[in-house]
């Protein structure tokens, strides 16, 4: 809560804390009011802000796209349909470019990933005190607006993608084929443990790199916005300088958020493509 903030450190910590809902140490369920409380809740707790914002953003996205898709005409497209078709065409081209197999899931998956991550990243451009400030007035202790700065969100998506990779690897190559791929290369069957170690690392690194890349980029961006925001409190000169900095960083950040969404999407397509290939 705004009243508790005295130092820059407090301000930063406050902005990096999720709104967590879980079981308190005394056995009751409720919101965590300090970072300590949130930590004590353990695994079975939910970051309501991450889940809420991500779901709301996805719903907005699907509302817009579904409305256009329902009325999609084959004639001359109107403004909204034009925009949607542009994105869909772009995704479709990307999928055709990197995915060689035949799977009706991949293109919609890519569209969902791209649009969803882009929208979640886009929340980073909202001035960082606006929404948490409003939430503070309502009485919420913490609020983190950008879901992709929460590792839970990025890991959640990366694990989902990983599950799809495992599913299609086994479905296309069979259990034997998949296990063989993990154990019999690159050194042949006499070096089985080494093979398993190398291939295992390769496999596990896929979701981890996916999740950490997105999380790291967005977390760093968010942190810079927070640091710029601290400067507003230190006089007129620093404040106006901070305004220019924030504008510059926001403009640069537009590139980053789009790029990160695109990278997540492209890597997902590539990983699924690898899962569909029998032999490399």
């Amino acid at each position: 809560m705004a009243g508790e903030i005295h130092t820059s450190t407090d301000y930063i910590k406050h902005h990096l804390q999720n709104l967590t809902w879980g079981q308190h140490s005394d056995g009751t369920w409720g919101l965590a009011h300090t970072a300590q409380e949130a930590k004590e809740m353990g695994f079975w707790a939910f970051n309501l802000d991450t889940l809420g914002f991500s779901v709301v953003l996805a719903v907005i996205f699907f509302f817009l796209f579904h409305r256009v898709a329902k009325k999609a005409t084959t004639g001359v497209p109107s403004g909204a349909q034009n925009f949607v078709e542009m994105i869909v065409d772009f995704i479709n081209d990307s999928v055709r470019g990197s995915f060689s197999g035949k799977n009706d899931l991949v293109a919609p998956l890519a569209l969902t990933i791209f649009a969803w991550i882009f929208l979640m990243n886009l929340m980073d451009l909202v001035p960082i005190d606006w929404i948490p400030g409003l939430a503070g007035m309502v009485g919420l202790p913490f609020l983190k607006v950008v879901p992709t700065t929460d590792p839970n969100a990025t890991f959640g998506m990366a694990i989902a993608v990983f599950a799809l990779v495992l599913y299609y690897s086994i479905k296309i190559k069979g259990v034997g084929g998949f296990v063989g791929e993990l154990t019999l290369q690159p050194f042949g069957k006499w070096a089985l443990p080494i093979n398993l170690f190398l291939e295992g690392v390769t496999l596990i690194s896929k979701p981890i790199s996916l999740a950490l890349r997105l999380f790291g980029n967005m977390y760093a961006g968010e942190m810079i916005f927070i640091l710029i925001a601290i400067m507003y409190g230190s006089g007129l000169m620093m404040g106006s300088f901070a305004g220019i900095l924030q504008l510059g960083w926001a403009i640069f950040h537009i590139l980053i958020i789009t790029l990160q969404a695109f990278i997540f999407m492209t890597l997902t397509i590539v990983y699924l493509d690898m899962a569909h290939q029998e032999h490399h």
């Binding site: 809740m41 839970n152 890991f155 989902a160």
Partner: peptide
Amino acid sequence: MNINATLIGQSISFFLFVWFCMKFVWP
């Protein structure tokens, strides 16, 4: 910054959204 059940929630909603996209938006 804690890893918690949000992870599971996010994965489930992710699958739901992909399914919705595959069913009603993309085709």
